[in-house]
Design a protein around this nucleic acid. Structure first.
Length: 268
DNA sequence: TCTGACCTGCGA
DNA sequence: TCGCAGGTCAGA
């Protein structure tokens, strides 16, 4: 569930609280979320290192800690929380960091779809597509991408090989904002529609970041509190409720096995 | 391009 | 008790 705005919120909060702190201790549980390293080796590699930087690319969060670079993908239910008492599922805490000021940071994942890697050099994300907050995510590059693809526009927005960071919630929301049907082939959008979608994409993501993300199920900020963007959703999980623009009921359909919410009248 | 598997909690 | 929620990847 964590998409770009949620991961960005988490990255900012970890950066503000823990950068320049030394990691005094790391505790792990041997769960499958550790990908290219054993849990205990991950703990050994990070113990004693100073947290120097916290960054994000798409839905990936990555740190620099001395000479090593832990990389986290939060899957659908991964969260970082600063206080164990904020956890509704303490038995699903798989990892914890104790910093030199005795603050602790916990990683919890109920469904264990997260992935954690450790690298000896800065990770490259060359398998991922354009990052919406990067300078190279220009209208021109977005237009070129759409012109080349016959797949439906919603699947393209969510395809991490093409655009990194957008998941089901925000794909639904930005298509509603742009007034474009999720079923349209990407290359069927005219110049005006591409520009509108480009603007909606930034508008929806920026607003969600300002509201600390969308809490629909598991997601919490590092403080353990819910985001606020769920109070502003126009279509996601609003099937059969009136469209905020025209009043017609919001539709829910499966599109490529994903729940898709849209207004038949407002989205063409 | 599509489907199933990975997971667990929750609501019907 | 069962289906759904959804990000990613392997395999068909």
């Amino acid at each position: 569930m964590p998409e770009l705005p949620e991961v960005e919120t988490i990255a900012r909060q970890i950066r503000d609280r823990y950068v320049s702190q030394t990691i005094e201790a790391v505790h792990t549980r041997p769960v499958r979320i550790f990908q290219n390293i054993l849990a205990r080796d991950f703990a050994d590699a990070l113990t004693g290192k100073k947290l120097q930087a916290v960054s994000r690319y798409g839905k990936f969060l990555y740190w620099q800690a001395g000479s090593v670079f832990p990389v986290f993908h939060l899957g659908m239910s991964g969260i970082f929380i600063c206080d164990r008492h904020h956890s509704n599922y303490p038995h699903h805490i798989h990892l914890s960091f104790t910093f030199q000021n005795t603050d602790r940071l916990y990683f919890q994942d109920v469904r264990k779809f997260s992935k954690i890697f450790l690298y000896g050099q800065p990770p490259d994300f060359n398998r991922l597509g354009l990052e919406p907050t990067n300078q190279n995510f220009t209208l021109n590059n977005f237009r070129k991408l759409l012109n080349l693809k016959t797949m439906n526009i919603k699947s393209l927005l969510m395809d991490q090989r093409h655009i990194a960071g957008i998941g089901n919630i925000y794909a639904n929301e930005m298509l509603f904002d742009a007034g474009i049907s999720p079923h349209r082939p990407a290359n069927s959008l005219d110049r005006r529609e591409v520009k509108k979608l480009y603007e909606s994409l930034h508008k929806v993501l920026t607003a969600a970041i300002q509201r600390f993300g969308t809490t629909y199920t598991a997601y919490r900020t590092v403080d353990g509190v819910a985001g606020e963007n769920q109070n502003f959703l126009a279509v996601y999980q609003r099937d059969n409720k009136p469209c905020i623009r025209c009043g017609n009921p919001i539709q829910k359909r499966l599109l490529n096995s994903r729940s898709t919410f849209y207004c038949k009248k407002c989205q063409r």
